[in-house]
Simulated scan of single mutants.
Amino acid sequence: MDTKLIEKIQKLLALSESSNRHEAELAMLKAQELLAKNKLSLKEVKEFKTFSSAIKENITKVTFTKAKWKAKLAKLIADNFGCYHYFKTRRTNTITFFGREEDITVCNIVLEYAVDCINSAVKRLRYQYMREGCSTRGLENDYALGFIDGLHEKFEEQKKRNQEWGLVLVKDKEVVDAYSQIKFKGTVKTNTYYQGYSEAYEKGYEDGEKFSISDKITERETEEPMALGSGI
């Protein structure tokens, strides 16, 4: 039995208990689709005990210098999928996830998708503000902060209403132990502050609460495995 496939379906089943009705329905539909396609029963998947996958790091394609909100977004995602995050620094800061292979893969998918969503929304807002003759300096930051806070609220609601979500959050003891052995050189300052764009922040918050990740977990089912960083 394909362990990675089973783990993917198990994650979708956990998400199907989401308090967000659309999110839950989409996750269950994706799970049912994979079950039917691979001729698996729900009982088989629920009872299957997967072996722990390798602990690795995943160096993402997401980098930042001034856009420090990306670091805050990465932390939120890592914390909600049982992983750690840190940065590879050389001229710019590259976001890196650390944890079980299947978990860092999900983190990478969700981060890239969230950053794309934020960038697209900011592009539209910036055009609107410029047409009205308004400054857009700090606009991206405030929309992103709103999005992150909205996504955080979504995760908190899932934790309150869905016990299964707790399984997604917990960091594996072996992952914790492995992370504690990493020697970091210096720190990266990631503090970022609200700039005063209340409408952008509120729009970001609304979009963050509506952000859906279920489809992205299965979207790459037929794609080549993502390259992972080698050494720690």
Rank of each mutant, 00 (worst) to 15 (best):
E17H: 15
E7W: 07
K8G: 04
K216D: 01
E223D: 09
K37A: 10
M1L: 11
T92W: 03
K30A: 10
L228S: 08
T190A: 11
K171F: 12
G133Y: 04
S135H: 07
S52Q: 08
I6H: 02
F184I: 10
Y179P: 10
I104Q: 01
R126K: 14
K75F: 08
Q128I: 09
K39D: 10
V168H: 06
T89I: 13
K61T: 13
D149K: 07
I59N: 03
E101Y: 01
G150H: 09
K8D: 04
D2F: 14
L125S: 05
G231S: 14
K189G: 12
R220I: 10
I148A: 06
S120D: 14
K66S: 07
D79S: 04
T65H: 10
I148D: 06
K68I: 10
A24I: 14
E25P: 03
E156I: 09
L73A: 04
M1R: 09
L125H: 02
T60V: 02
V168R: 08
M1P: 10
K30P: 04
E219I: 03
S198Y: 14
E174W: 11
N80D: 03
C134L: 12
K43V: 15
G133F: 06
C83T: 07
R220D: 06
Y193I: 08
L228W: 08
A144F: 02
L5D: 12
G204S: 05
K75V: 11
E102D: 10
Y143K: 03
Q10C: 02
A71N: 05
N58D: 02
A24P: 12
G208V: 02
F87A: 10
A121D: 02
Q163R: 11
K189T: 15
K75E: 12
P225H: 10
S52G: 01
N141S: 12
V110E: 00
T136I: 15
E153V: 08
I217K: 00
K183M: 14
Q181A: 13
L15C: 05
N141V: 14
E44T: 12
E44N: 06
S120A: 14
Y194I: 09
G208N: 05
G99D: 02
T190L: 11
L29Q: 12
S19G: 05
E23Y: 14
